[in-house]
Design a protein around this nucleic acid. Structure first.
Ligand SMILES: [Mn+2]
Ligand SMILES: [Mn+2]
Ligand SMILES: [Mn+2]
Ligand SMILES: [Mn+2]
Lengths: 218, 218
DNA sequence: ATATAAAGTTAGATTAGTCTAACAATTTTA
DNA sequence: TAAAATTGTTAGACTAATCTAACTTTATAT
């Protein structure tokens, strides 16, 4: 099996486990853009390599080895994103696709150097935690903006999504990490929120947007 | 055909044409570490794509399109090497293998940014010219040190080889680009040279080393 | 509880890039 | 110039990663 294939499958499995709580064949297929039979046969190989535990018709589970290797791919991805933003003046909306390619570079020394130049950063430009060299992540329990109530004061801490369109949307409204927001109104019909940011006009954010903004209550 | 495969074959062909004057199937096979039948079948595909001109038993020639695309791969390789040395504090002996991987990244904007940060550099850390965005290279006609005569004063301008072992050898002797040397003696038996660098003890360099040092006469 | 839908599986085919074995053409050497 | 060496070609096979079609198992909804 090719290194890139291995890394892409492991990463997808790791993120599915985080996001959905479970790794299903069809979820994995959708995520990777391949058919179910493809995933099925790949998962058998991953099991054979000791990266997943799996029985017919049961959900897939990463072994601790699989988890660790997946976390290291994610580490490289997020280090690259951070390097591009901090050291090469890219916008946070530009870096995901580049990182998607660079995460597969085999020269460990490259990522170590990035890490050093960045001062061993704990978070990437989107607020996601960067796993350490042993694959350990300390994830903070942020809440999504849509769980807040009227009158809550919050700080934006992370995003649930790297997506360029979403980031362009946020850029257009001056929503960045560490921005403080006040929840002014919640529309009962569609759960959209009216929020205000200091010194800016109030904004209306749809439920889809609020779901993707991870915040900390002040 | 996969982008990486295409780029590796084009680059190998381009460099063979430069170094040997001709692109042979076996040369290409050796360079790429694949068998002759493999190269044979790939070259047919390259012809079909319009990247090479070729007839049975005749040497392969790159079309101008092929040459241009090859030069752009080499551009990326050398920009990466330069970026790693100038902006990330890597040594010139460390960067080739990393560049070998990064040259295949598809995000053009990444290389444009490197180019900007480096001020549109004309040469890489080993003195090789960096092709411009149109694939044009202006190559200077350096001579190899082994062609010099006793008493010649020269400046090291480039290397014929990226090889880590060779670069480690040069590091150990404080031979860098722009260093000035005087040819003190040439041994008729093995063509080895005794040379001196200002403020350093004289050195004896084998023919293999002299062949790989490209210099300009003062 | 049954029918329907969703998820998972199997079988068999395909494509890119590679190989070895056998042979043919060309070039070099004696 | 004939033999030997090198270079190039053909045929046929293999592996990784993918697909579609047909089928089975499990979950969901009426
Ligand atoms: Mn990302
Ligand atoms: Mn990110
Ligand atoms: Mn190089
Ligand atoms: Mn170089």
């Amino acid at each position: 099996m090719t290194l890139k294939t291995k890394e892409n499958y492991l990463k997808a499995m790791y993120m599915l486990a985080e996001e959905e709580g479970v790794i299903s064949l069809s979820g994995l297929g959708k995520r990777l853009g391949v058919s179910k039979p493809t995933v099925n046969s790949m998962v058998k190989q991953f099991q054979h390599e000791g990266w997943v535990e799996y029985q017919k018709y049961k959900p897939i589970e990463l072994t601790s080895q699989g988890k660790k290797e997946a976390a290291l791919v994610i580490r490289r991805h997020r280090l690259v994103e951070m390097f591009l933003v901090e050291k090469m003046e890219f916008g946070w909306e530009e870096v995901h696709d580049i990182a998607e390619e660079m995460e597969h570079v085999e020269a460990e020394i490259l990522f170590d150097r990035m890490n050093d130049m960045l001062g061993n950063p704990a978070f990437d430009p989107h607020g996601s935690p960067i796993p350490d060299k042993n694959g350990n992540v300390l994830s903070r329990p942020y809440l999504s903006l849509s769980e807040m109530r009227r009158g809550d004061r919050v700080v934006v801490k992370a995003l649930r999504d790297d997506n360029k369109e979403f980031l362009d949307y946020l850029n257009g409204r001056h929503i960045r990490l560490e921005v403080e927001m006040l929840v002014e109104q919640i529309e009962t019909f569609d759960k959209s929120m009216t929020i205000s940011i200091e010194k800016e006009p109030s904004l209306n954010l749809s439920k889809e947007v609020c779901d993707r903004l991870l915040v900390e209550r002040l």
